[in-house]
Design a protein around this nucleic acid. Structure first.
Lengths: 341, 341
DNA sequence: TGGCGAAATTTAATCGATTAAGTTACAACT
DNA sequence: AGTTGTAACTTAATCGATTAAATTTCGCCA
């Protein structure tokens, strides 16, 4: 932790050229002769000047090479969720390749203005819980790419959640089913519960709403029906929250014959509960998941689910941001025919 | 994405006071009357000036509120490893509480000088693979805290890896054992292999070396012995890498009676391979892990391992950095008596 | 009313660069 | 030789703040 007080000015004095020339040697090779450039760089190396101060560059150039990844839920949860962390992987892979840096930002705390002055843009993963954030994104000074939700006017990366939900549900549903749904973030409640008549969550249309629409459509088209008290709200895609819903839904009398889950984590937890109770899957209970996490393919029986590539999503989001693209992208997905339907 | 061209100077002109006063209103309440301060803040709010530009502050004040977390392996791997991501959780929890921001930095690429000018400090998690990084940390201009390894002169957070390894191995070892070790990052090789006579990895003493010392000591003290060809090197704590080593070690003739694994991920993979082969654990094969990840407690049989709190480690590392502490901290660990020894 | 000290506010230097515009040097051409 | 064009550098304004030091204001008391 030693102090090096070398500045462009100082170095310029030592070497005997102007600050502009040194700056150009580092940033704009075409502005000086290759020979002088070599010479300058070599001398800088020798006296221990490792290039222009980054903080000053950020101020002057207005760009830092830092991209903020806003995790709509808190960071704590996100890094342990397989889907989210795979997404982060994708983002970081692209950023690294382009020599950019990744700042992790919690959507549930603080304002993006805290960092807006020194980041080059935002990737927001997942629909914001607090509407203030959505508002801030809308009026952000720096470019924004949204993922897994939409905000009017901002470029986004999504799959067609409604269609995907419709597809997987259609695959599962027979003619005369009792259907339940284990939904993710459907309403504004921090605890697992049935939704009954609660208003659906979020002004901005979220993946939860889209998936729900898809499910409902499939249920209707297959001639089945469902009431709100057989729709559960789970606040986060974690086993602990899912367990409670799983237990409740499996205790219903009569028991559902098909349960549509809005994430694999939820579905796997449900599957485990069902097996512990000796319920045969899929013979007397069909289960569908959503996401296509690795673990879903490894379990026995393996899960029927919608597989989307989180890593590709991350890569695409980062690429769009860096390229300042403005259109929305709808990615493809795969319906996995597992052993649970 | 609209442009707001408000600067301190502009605001000062509008409101009719000096730039210093506005700056003080935001940063140093004691420098002006409470009344005027209120008035200024209110007016700023009205004209849409949300406080001093952060980029300029970073340059002027020399602090940004950004902490860089260097992941010695690449980010990609780290966010999916349960131990590392739990650590990140701990770090982010503390930073968030103090209104600091988290920058994720890959240890295997680029120089920390790329960010040194605009971060307030570094937390380096895990021993650097490239020695250049170790060198850079040593001479870093900003504060550094190392975790799970040591660099002379820098504050660190560790458990006593040698003692812990000794403890867990001692628990497993009987009098007349055939012992094998599945080691993590023992040598400088990107593939899984036996170490034979390869030189051990890393100039800086790493957790791998310490754990190995602990194992060897326990092996010796219990009157057993081991040769290098029964020590495996696994480059990263991932199932895929572990699988190969597990398969090899279980095919040895005669088969080891005790296998010491340097991570839970490795141990769990080994356990699974063993069970698939119909080997009875612990009756004919004892297994120990390291780390104490949640999953290790949930498997059947549950794993005998060393449990260290990654979240506490993360919190402590962040706290030390923010407090500019300079001493080393040795954290405690628990020996988990599972069903695999 | 004048004087004094503390509080409030302003002045101006500084943080460390980038870059448009201006200057100098020099080779090439008529 | 004189002109011209281009390459190579330098000058100086600017990015948007912070803060020590200087100045002004003001309350209070003799």
């Amino acid at each position: 932790m030693k102090k090096n007080k070398l500045t462009l000015k100082g170095v310029a004095d030592i070497i005997g050229v102007s600050t502009a020339t040194i700056s150009n040697a580092f940033n704009r090779p075409d502005q000086l002769s290759a020979k002088k450039r070599e010479e300058i760089l070599k001398k800088c190396e020798k006296i221990g000047y490792h290039g222009p101060n980054k903080a000053a560059q950020i101020l002057r150039k207005g760009e830092s090479g830092i991209v903020a990844l806003i995790l709509a839920d808190n960071i704590e949860y996100m890094v342990s969720d397989p889907v989210a962390s795979t997404f982060i992987k994708g983002v970081s892979r692209v950023l690294q390749k382009q020599n950019k840096h990744l700042l992790l930002f919690s959507g549930n705390e603080g304002s993006i203005r805290d960092v807006s002055d020194f980041v080059d843009g935002f990737i927001c993963y997942g629909a914001p819980q607090n509407t203030a954030l959505a508002q801030e994104l809308k009026s952000a000074v720096k470019p924004v790419v949204t993922v897994d939700f939409d905000i009017e006017g901002l470029p986004s990366v999504n799959i067609d959640n409604e269609q995907a939900a419709f597809d997987i549900a259609s695959k599962a549903l027979g003619y005369d089913e009792r259907v339940a749904i284990l939904g993710l973030k459907l309403i504004d409640s921090p605890t697992t519960c049935r939704i009954y008549d609660s208003p659906l969550f979020g002004a901005e249309s979220s993946i939860a709403q889209r998936r729900l629409q898809g499910y409902l459509k499939a249920i209707e088209q297959t001639g089945n029906h469902i009431t709100n008290d057989w729709i559960w709200h789970i606040p986060e895609s974690q086993s602990a929250y899912a367990r409670q819903a799983a237990s409740e839904v499996l205790n219903c009398e009569p028991r559902p014959t098909t349960i549509l889950c809005m994430s694999d984590i939820i579905a796997l937890e449900l599957l485990q509960c069902a097996m512990a109770k000796g319920i045969e899957v899929p013979a007397s209970l069909k289960i569908t998941g959503f996401d296509g996490i690795d673990e879903a393919a490894r379990t026995r029986p393996n899960l029927s689910t919608v597989c989307q590539s989180s890593i590709a999503k991350g890569e695409l989001a980062a690429t769009k941001l860096l390229e300042n693209a403005s259109e929305n992208t709808v990615m493809s997905y795969d319906i996995i025919s597992g052993e649970t339907v």
